[in-house]
Design a protein around this nucleic acid. Structure first.
Lengths: 338, 338
DNA sequence: TCGCCTGATGTAATCGTTTACATGGCTAGC
DNA sequence: GCTAGCCATGTAAACGATTACATCAGGCGA
């Protein structure tokens, strides 16, 4: 590995000049610059990142933590993050926290040790040990929240308008003639679950049929989706439609419907949330809310880089567009409402 | 951030002694060690990784590249990798290559610049620029291949026995009474596709019905799965079963079957490959080959750490156990063979 | 009693950058 | 023709660890 010393020697200049050519080319005369650049090229010189980091405190890495990387929604967001980060010259450090506070803390420590320039966390929990940092630095803390959004956290974020998305889903069902609707939420500790739930209730209130809502709490998983959907389907006043707060939950719901010998959408309509890559290939293809995963990934990186470049001192909450994707899992209910 | 100097001052020793307490405690007397440890604790000292890296050439990071992180099979393997790596004190740098040689090269350069101690690549392509490194260092090159396996590559790997797995799938179908079987492979550039194909042909040869095989080349994706399955289903001598080299391909196949008004498994049985987390929740639940994704992730990290610790000078190919998971997408064909 | 060995610790060079400050040559203004 | 100021460049001190080598004290054998 050629060092900056080698380049300096080859070009017949000092290391300071080489460094300047690389980071502030206009502070060096054209002829010298030419010689240095030639030396760099001929030696295949590339700066040692560890030395650079030691000196500048910049690692050129961003840490991304996620509750479960094998969840397709998150992995799609991560993909966008990786793309934006590598495009901006940053490497991505991946942390799978498995919803465990201990692992979150472990990665938080990496940030505190400055082993990464910033942290993007997907999911709703700001790792505990980071709270003082946010309190102290405010919007200058290099921490950004993706997908979720809690104003109280004090960090910037990128996400969709979850309440509006939920309203869109409900309106779609109401529009088809459903009134008795089952809702399987995510964990209520998560603000996006609460936002969606607010949307659900708002939509029902507008139509004055809040009491026709059957709301149960899930956790975004397939298994819980299946179980909770089962409970709803077994009620005497069975809902004619289910709105699930994730596509995985919806997959579980579809499974529960089939197991009971019912069919979707004839007996029960199902709406999911996320539009993961398989949503269109389920049976029936799933009506769902599309989240712009790649765009969320890009945006969250942009927000972080903005903080890192010392930009705005304000926390920003970027709302990205969602859309309702209507497929075959929703239809008008048969019977009275048809 | 406290530095080693601060600790040394607080404990009244030299930095050398502090360093020794941290990395070779038995070279320091018990009393001194005690004082140093107390100082470390009271200052909350934690070594600066950049400085350490600069001096030792060890980054404590491993680079993991993957053709598509949003592919659930890969993301499950990554999860295992992350778990094993963080357990061993390594951080994971994630590279999504998107099957693009340019991105592979970009990440290969990171390894060459020693920004990571080693590389784990999932997928079949050793990034081009790394070939010289492998040629030169042989088994000491800190590069390991996950999921795939090509002996010619010269690097260690962890994977299942793909030929045996394919044989198991075929035997399952033959055992049910199928003889006309359609096969949708992955890209043939990939050794695992070729291995699986060999298994398919071997199984057919044993039963002397190679000519009943209908083999088409896919690429593991849903869309291609749907298209290729469509082609097979539209043949005059329609296969009674399809063996798909990935679960996503199988999802596409199920879709194609439904679109033609056929049903699975009554008209056509389907076998997938991977057992991704949704496989059991498709309609019908998918019979498939389970790959031990977490275990592959762990193993591949173990292999890499072995190289990094200067262990064995031999490339090793670790075969992990697969299993056939029989669900509802396969049944005996109706008609003559029933 | 003396010298040697051993074990504990310190000194200081080193890893490869960046950057504050010093230097020296030139130009421009008077 | 002289000086102030600027521009291009060099010098050298950090950044925070590790480690080869030096030093020193004490114990032990002859």
């Amino acid at each position: 590995m050629a060092t900056i010393q080698d380049v300096a020697r080859t070009a017949g200049v000092s290391t300071a000049t080489v460094s300047r050519v690389l980071s502030a080319p206009d502070r060096v005369s054209a002829t010298t610059r030419g010689r240095v650049e030639a030396a760099v090229a001929s030696l295949g010189y590339t700066p040692n990142l560890a030395a650079k980091t030691l000196r500048t405190l910049r690692t050129h890495k961003i840490l991304v933590t996620v509750p479960d990387i094998s969840n397709p929604f998150f992995s799609q967001v991560i993909r966008g993050v990786e793309e934006a980060a590598s495009g901006a010259g940053y490497a991505v450090l991946l942390g799978d926290t498995r919803h465990e506070a201990a692992r979150e803390a472990q990665y938080a420590a990496m940030l505190q040790r400055r082993e990464a320039d910033g942290l993007i966390f997907l999911g709703h929990r700001l790792p505990e040990p980071l709270a003082p940092m946010v309190a102290e630095m405010g919007a200058r803390a290099p921490i950004v929240n993706g997908c979720e959004y809690s104003p109280g956290l004090g960090v910037s974020s990128a996400h969709i308008d979850n309440a509006a998305a939920a309203i869109a889903a409900m309106e779609h069902l109401y529009g088809l003639g459903h009134s008795r609707i089952g809702v399987i939420t995510g964990p209520l500790a998560s603000p996006i679950s609460r936002d969606r739930l607010n949307g659900v209730e708002l939509a029902a209130t507008r139509r004055d049929i809040v009491r026709d809502l059957a709301i149960v709490t899930g956790d975004f998983s397939i298994e819980t989706g299946a179980r909770k959907a089962g409970e709803l389907l077994d009620r005497p006043d069975r809902p004619t439609a289910l709105f699930c707060f994730s596509d995985e939950t919806a997959m579980g719901a579809l499974d529960a419907i089939r197991r009971r010998g019912l069919s979707c959408p004839e007996d029960v309509s199902v709406v999911g949330f996320d539009d993961i890559r398989f949503a269109g290939y389920l049976d029936p293809p799933l009506t769902t809310i599309r989240q712009p995963t790649a765009q969320i990934g890009h945006e969250v990186v942009r927000l972080l880089l903005e903080v890192l470049s010392g930009g705005s001192a304000l926390t920003r909450h970027v709302t990205l567009p969602h859309s309702l994707v209507v497929r075959a899992s929703t239809a008008s209910p048969r019977g009275p409402a048809t």
